[in-house]
Amino acid sequence: MAVRRSKGETIFLAVNYLVMALLCLSMLFPFWSLLAKSFAAASVPSTQLYFWPSQTTLANYARVFANKNIWIGFGNTIFRTVVGTILSLVMSIHVAYPLSKKYLPNRTFWTSLIVFTMFFSGGMIPEYILVRSLKLYNSRWALIFPILLNTFNMIIIRNYFMSIPDSLEESAKIDGANDLLILYRIIIPLSFPIIATVVLWTAVSHWNAWFDSLIYISDGNKQVLQTILRRIVLEGSLQLMELQGGAMAMEASNVSSEAIKAATVIVATTPILVAYPFLQKYFVKGVLVGSLKG
């Protein structure tokens, strides 16, 4: 693709590249310092700034992974993230599609009914009572069903559907396709970028959620990763303040509480960070429309 550029455009591009590079450096910095800290040995002071710690150790990670509960947490979090995201996506698309159609009877009413709930909700107590009476208490589904639909995400999908030219659909209708067929054959394939966006949003919010687990789950085997990591961090700092109970760890420990904290952040975020590059191909400029039309 040899595009001739004017001088102005070239300067603009150069500046653009530079600005992006600087911005990235500033954004990489906190993450990098956490990563570096997570490898720091206990002898490295937690308050010092460094590019890479003078003494490194894997003991911080060993400590995090030595806790057998972390695997339980990973299992439960992956479950809620994968199942929750798939179900949410399926629901969102199927609600968004009818609402995107101007000819849906009483469309304004249905939309209002849904958007209203974004601003008015009953609060934690009735929601807890509801989950209890649905027999979802202490079940992994309690972390999925109450947030099955996110109105914001759904509206974003709906508006994307609306921006797809009607002409595509009309020609399919003439060929005798019904609404379902149009949704699956035309609309969804055209909407991969927005679907990827919503998948990312939903997955990340599932991955990071922990308070619902505290409310709805009492069984230790159903705890999510975030609650277990919070506990590991706490244990790390508890060792610094043990009041009674005497000698805690007799051998000089090679972990420091700040380094454990850094390691848990890395452990908690890396898996979900890795998901992004896989979705990225759907954000690449203008591939799909052209191929579909051709």
């Binding site: 400590r63 030595a66 806790n67 509960n69 506990r231 706490l234 244990e235 508890l238 060792q239 009674q244 109970g245 005497g246 000698a247 805690m248 760890a249 007799m250």
Partner: peptide, 15 residues
């Protein structure tokens, strides 16, 4: 002095 020594798993996991 009512001080104890933790053993086994308890040694490095308060929880």
């Amino acid at each position: 002095h009512e001080t104890i020594l933790k053993l086994g798993q308890y040694m490095d996991r308060e929880s």
